[in-house]
Design a protein around this nucleic acid. Sequence first.
DNA 1: CGGTCTGTTGAGTACGGTCAACAACTGTGG
DNA 2: CCACAGTTGTTGACCGTACTCAACAGACCG
Lengths: 230, 230
Amino acid sequence: MSGVDRSVLAGLKPFAGWAAADLDALLAPAHARRFDKGAAPFEQGAPADSFFLLLDGHVQASKLTPDGRQIIVRYIGPGELFGIAAQIRETTYPATAKAVVESLTLVWPSSIWPELAAKFPALSSGLLQAFGARLADANARVIEMATEPVERRLARALLKLAAQSGRPVEGGVEIDFPLTRQELGEMIGATLFSVSRLLKAWETEGLIAGGRARIVVRRSDRLSAIAEGE
Amino acid sequence: MSGVDRSVLAGLKPFAGWAAADLDALLAPAHARRFDKGAAPFEQGAPADSFFLLLDGHVQASKLTPDGRQIIVRYIGPGELFGIAAQIRETTYPATAKAVVESLTLVWPSSIWPELAAKFPALSSGLLQAFGARLADANARVIEMATEPVERRLARALLKLAAQSGRPVEGGVEIDFPLTRQELGEMIGATLFSVSRLLKAWETEGLIAGGRARIVVRRSDRLSAIAEGE
DNA sequence: CGGTCTGTTGAGTACGGTCAACAACTGTGG
DNA sequence: CCACAGTTGTTGACCGTACTCAACAGACCG
């Protein structure tokens, strides 16, 4: 047994409406695992022996280029599966996952995927959906990188992060995990210097606020305007 | 009946080893359709009522950005399924397909996909594989765009095209369909001017050759060196 | 209280985009 | 067959965005 109660799953969108017995069956082969801030559930290139469901916290998925530069693929929030890319074709993880805050996950052995997928068709169709969404997202990013200036990409990234992982605070929405200029740069393909200049300008204009590795989106309307094209 | 013999499928990699009866069953609901050079099997945003298998020719998949710029997602070669992204989540085509040379396709109504997928598990697992490959490719492109200069991206694009759609000629490999500087630019996120300058330089150095909309890769070794980093 | 991490700011530079002009080739219709 | 229009490719001048590098200032942590 996993020591995890089915109630932790029942609250997550992907499992809404599942029967209790099914949730139990899904949970049986899983175990819970906690990761400290900075710890890595898996590294790019390592054998993909497990897949994960994030229960609480935030996990960063990044890739290393051949010449040692890092780019951030996405941030994973509670309720999302990760480490599943491997189930589809590869035997090693295509990216590195790192907990950016203390995070709680469920872990299944990869070998059990076919059995689970057969028992719960909703799982594999959900996987397809997720892949479709990621493919669309990746294509959108290619287009952005090719056609849009850094300023727009940055505004867009902030809005996306606020929408996905935002926590309402007075006067805006705070991005719910520490996020440095360096990391923002690695998300949008820019240097930390360019990011720093833009954020500073926006802060003095009142569009955003924040402290060390903390960002609050204050005026998402004006950021949207920048993201679209002034 | 489709008027297409099962022998046209038997020669394509995805169908190697299929039983004759299965091929016939797969072919039954399909019909053949020819597209002139320049004709579009489908347009971005249109209802996705069909999916396609390219038998012969070359098809370009492109997307239009909100502000009217075009970017080329990929080139499709014989034996590849296309127009299937819709089967996964969307009801409209996410991109436009255009025949860049006269092309021959098989067409199935989208509505029949679930039935076919159920009857031939190899089809849906092939789809997953294809999606995985495309996702990996899209991610690789994001990384390229973010970290590599135009010169490298162009060299890489030429090598990929030559490998995928190359026809050996004396002294090199010719890309098997007309390809303008404009289109190369739209593939790698650059202007036709930058592409023109680079190709000219490479032509005088003997790395490539070509005429109007024709490109022959002569020295793939040296192009590889450029693609990696001199 | 030093060391590390994060952020700011400035100066210089270059890659690649924009725009304009023209040349060469292709296909079409009179 | 030629004239013409359309497409494709080349080249030059200019310029701006964003990168590189350097120096420094706070914030956080042990």
